[in-house]
Design a protein around this nucleic acid. Structure first.
Lengths: 193, 193
DNA sequence: TTTATTTTGGAATGATCGTTTCAGAATGTA
DNA sequence: TACATTCTGAAACGATCATTCCAAAATAAA
């Protein structure tokens, strides 16, 4: 009974996501968002609620995309479970070194997850999904004898996932790509023995 | 020729550090600092410059204290190099689980170090000092045959140090102390073989 | 075409931001 | 005691913050 929006919400969320991703929550102003999304202030509030709500929406989108990114490796045929996991690690290293934008989940976790329960919940959900994927691959690797019998897939999955966090931080600080690669190589080597 | 300050600067820096540590840079207002430091606005600006400068001072203090904290383990006698490193890991795990306040270096790194060169420099300096300590311990452990000949002390030191980052993040998200302990155990086990 | 409903643009809100100003109190030195 | 200098307290600064409001433009359905 009334006119439609002049924009596609998903596209605007993607624009906002870019800004939040780069600057973080607190350092991003509504003016930044209005500029980046190329949308009127009223439309922004009308469609997405306030800043906090918009951020949550962006974080959900990010979590969804990031998890999908990890899972895309599963589609590669002719790879054993362990090889898939190694491929995932390689892809992540590439992303860490190539794109200076740090993982938004990690960044938001340190900035907000301590105080903001909803933020924590969203990040945890995305983490759970990815750690679950890793655990599954490791369990299958164990069944096929690719990794030792005494390894605990769940703990190992957490360690790999958490290693990612450190690699990002290391790269921010040292800007040393080969160091990240060496750490990844070390991690992969210790999966096998 | 004129009156002295009514306060001890180091004490006020410590108060400010607490606030920045907990809330992060952007989420901390000058009003928060005035309240916490129990100091007049003018005195604050007069003694410490602006917000950014005060933050840098706090970060330097933090880095100094954190590095000292790691080094305090060196004073323990009757410990081999590898045992010292294991002790350091244990102490860090305890700190991670006991004190919900995340490492300020890591937090600031993700919030600011990407854009703020001075912040990056300060954090890097503290990291270098601690990673240097770890490297040294690992080198001595290698000399004494505590760790395998094919290990690279420098890379291993980075891996341990970076693992810390992930543990913090994991604890923020999962609040699972035993998970952190298991990850630490795994790390220590893989130092030896 | 009319009507009901929504979007849109832009101005305006009060709150809070980091910072400055300034008069007066305080105090070390001469 | 007198002077020079610094610190202190409180108010005030302009800028920016997130958010709201309202009238006008737009348009889907009746």
């Amino acid at each position: 009974m009334a006119r439609d929006k002049d924009f596609i919400p998903e596209e605007k969320i993607a624009k906002a996501l870019d800004v939040f991703w780069q600057k973080g929550y607190n350092a991003t102003s509504m003016q930044d968002l209005v500029d980046a999304m190329q949308i009127n202030r009223s439309s922004l509030y009308n469609s997405f609620g306030d800043k906090h709500n918009l951020f949550l929406e962006c974080l959900r989108t990010y979590g969804y995309l990031a998890a999908q990114d990890f899972e895309s490796v599963l589609k590669l045929k002719d790879l054993s479970p362990l090889e898939m996991l190694e491929k995932i690690i390689d892809v992540y290293v590439e992303g860490t070194v190539y794109d200076c934008k740090c993982c938004m989940g990690i960044k938001s976790s340190f900035e907000l997850a301590g105080d903001d329960e909803e933020v924590r919940r969203i990040i945890k959900q995305a983490s759970d999904r990815t750690i679950g994927l890793f655990t599954d691959l490791l369990r299958r690797a164990k069944e096929q004898g690719e990794i030792a019998e005494d390894k605990n897939p769940a703990v190992l999955a957490h360690i790999i996932f958490n290693g990612f966090c450190g690699w990002k931080q290391s790269y921010i600080q040292f800007k040393d790509a080969s160091l990240i690669e060496e750490m990844a190589t070390y991690t992969k080597k210790h999966l096998r023995n």
